[in-house]
Nucleic acid binder design. Structure first.
Lengths: 413, 413
DNA sequence: CGTGTTTTGTTCATGTCGGATACAAAGCCA
DNA sequence: TGGCTTTGTATCCGACATGAACAAAACACG
């Protein structure tokens, strides 16, 4: 029927009709049935039916043959749409202080297969990237799935457009390592296919956490989503605007670690004092609690364990409240500048929020300018492996923008 | 029985083809000829020709009948596109501390006619809005132009979605005055037509300055544009992302006045100390210069006159450098958070930049995190009446999004 | 139990929009 | 004057969404 089609994309490219929006609805779990798809897209049943048929033909979804009627509804039951069991995936790689993790991630942010490697990260980024990509390539072979792209998360700000890791914190990597290029080369050498010639995206892990949570977690439905998180050392931030990551003109936006939250605070390597980076990270909490970091477990784990298990201890509680107050001050400043409609917190900050939700919300409300802004919801992150899922989102994005590009790339797993 | 559904326009509305983008190109001066329009839109000559013909039929543009060849070019000379001489306009109103100003603004941000009224602003916003709108209505009658909408600029943060002036600085208005509703009512009573039922938009004046400069001034071509300005008291900010004003989820974004730039500084009404609002506005400069404000001339005028005429005086220079350092600190913080690709300064800050451009750029580069971010261009605003032009942009926006809506509204000036 | 009612899915004719191509027009250059 | 280059236009066609009519699959109710 509808043939091979498709000439050139114009510069007015609107994302090729309703296919892209439809796939995005499926991806974010907002299209459980054809009927919902119809209303969400705002098109006629005819169009939604055609779109669903095309998504099925492309292998993204399956439609149940014999729908069961939901209880208490009238009319003909709508066919349900499922993400295809053996549908395409993307390869996601995350580098962290203790090693790497690789996953195949399907539509809907579903982790299909995952593996990881531990050990100290060598000084040459190419080594660990190659190792991770080879591991991912093995997962791909085993799964028999088609791969549409790959994404990378690193614990560093990533400069656009070249994809250089500017401050690879707590890795032995040189500053400015061209991680995107190295990742691309590793993919090419391992023979990992993709849908576009420039397959392979990279991004700093807090940015990707925000993206993942926006699509599949605590940020669902938010228009302007602010994410603040502290994993190991330092504090990171990210902003999703209208469903797109705002990473600034050169990829360096939301470096929130150097907001001043304690004028008499500790000196920071940025030259100032009392930056969020040194006042509200796990090390700062352990210091305030009078528990110097021990050898076992990451700083984050030590700090969150303390918060979760010993918050009754007055000195721990005092340290927690101190950090909450500092964090709240920083967040209030961000609220005044960005006026997001939701804030989500990860890592240590999630644990702080869960230890005493009211205090943090009160501080933010108190220090942000307008009462209305003070009522912005503050929630904990909810996804596992959200950095990894976020890296996958980067790779999925071109497919969501135009699902038909998969026709151009011939590749099988 | 069937098919009653789907009266409404599709939610996929992409802005009706290439017409909107084409009008926007004309509006921003990037479509001088049909040939340029063709390449800028990325469509075929046939399409661009049809689009230009339609814009001409709608009365937005005129096409010269006998193009003159540009020197040194080969081939058939392209017909030039002009904004129609007697084309439609929008009504722009700006309220400021000393009165109001009204203008008819055509495509391209061209002020076609303007008038103003002086005097103290009465406590009831409805009065001055009515007076201004009546003056604008008179301008419209005299001009004989068709009016497509109206926009309002006020010196206050404006809360969305209701359009309330939260902090009408230096006006006797009550906080929370529903200026959008009052403006709409004044428009209706004066019989000013528009293209949509909810004609009439309002916005804080720094936001609108940013919008105007982005479209027609120093911000042309920037993708992420940050604007910081200080007019009378306090400091305002605004951000344009991808050509759209980012005003936050409730219209309160970029309230940059309460960034801390001097931990030992003066107390601010927000409860903190050393906020940009009280450390880098005209009053702060006059105080630092040892010149208490005099009775004649606005604070802004007194401050900028001092900067422009007496910068050789060491005490004036010292005060200027002090404010530049504080401003630079605040801007550096914003650069770290927003990573814009251009910054423009208005009001006092423009004068500070012009007094010593290198110092400000050096401070920002020094305090922003990455050298690359430090190289962000910092420019002075260039437009006259940029708040007024920005208010007009708000009114033009629906037309730029879909030029065909003018067909639905029957109205003549 | 059969008949309406409601909701969903599909088929087909229609219309709009932009692309592709061929051709015409309007200037340079020799 | 005849190429050469660039721009504008006429015509055809494909892509895609609409709208209406029809078919299908459930429930409601006498």
């Amino acid at each position: 029927m509808d043939g091979v089609t498709h000439t050139r994309t114009t510069r007015l490219e609107r994302g090729r009709g309703a296919l892209g929006p439809a796939l995005e609805l499926v991806h974010t779990g907002r299209a459980p049935t054809r009927a919902v798809l119809t209303s969400e897209l705002g098109v006629t049943r005819a169009t939604a039916g055609a779109v669903a048929a095309e998504l099925e033909a492309l292998g993204f979804i399956t439609v149940d043959a014999h729908p069961t009627a939901a209880a208490g509804t009238q009319g003909r039951p709508s066919h349900r749409l499922f993400i295809a069991e053996q549908g395409p995936v993307v390869l996601a790689v995350q580098i962290h202080a203790d090693g790497y993790r690789v996953a195949l991630v399907g539509l809907g942010g579903r982790i299909v297969a995952t593996t990881s490697g531990c050990g100290t990260i060598p000084a040459d980024p190419a080594h660990i990237l190659s190792e991770a990509v080879r591991a991912g390539s093995g997962l791909l072979r085993d799964s028999g799935r088609r791969c549409l792209g790959a994404g990378l998360a690193v614990p560093s700000a990533v400069a656009e457009p070249d994809g250089e890791a500017l401050n690879p914190l707590h890795l032995a990597w040189p500053a400015g390592a061209p991680v995107r290029r190295l990742f691309l080369r590793a993919l090419t050498e391992a023979g990992v296919p993709g849908v576009t010639p420039d397959v392979g995206f990279s991004g700093n892990d807090v940015n990707l956490t925000a993206l993942a949570e926006h699509r599949h977690g605590a940020g669902r439905g938010a228009r302007d989503l602010l994410c603040v998180a502290s994993g190991h050392r330092g504090v990171g931030g990210a902003l999703v605007l209208d469903g797109r990551l705002h990473s600034g003109s050169s990829g360096l936006a939301l470096e929130v670690g150097h907001l001043t939250v304690n004028p008499e605070g500790a000196p920071c390597h940025c030259g100032s004092r009392g930056c969020l980076d040194v006042e509200a990270d796990p090390l700062a909490f352990l210091g305030a609690a009078g528990r110097p970091p021990g050898p076992e477990g990451s700083l984050l784990k030590q700090a969150t364990d303390l918060l979760r298990e010993e918050y009754a201890d007055p000195s721990i509680r005092a340290a927690g409240e101190l950090l909450i107050d500092r964090l709240g001050l920083g967040i209030a400043g961000l609220v005044n500048i960005l006026n997001p409609d939701r804030i989500i917190l990860g890592g240590l900050h999630r644990a702080l929020l869960e230890a005493d939700p009211e205090r943090l919300r009160a501080v933010v409300a108190d220090r942000s300018l307008w009462g209305r802004s003070g009522s912005v919801p503050i929630l904990p992150c909810t996804l596992d492996h959200n950095g990894l899922v976020g890296a996958a989102e980067l790779a999925w994005q071109p497919v969501l923008d135009d699902p038909l590009i998969v026709l151009g790339a011939e590749a099988t797993g």
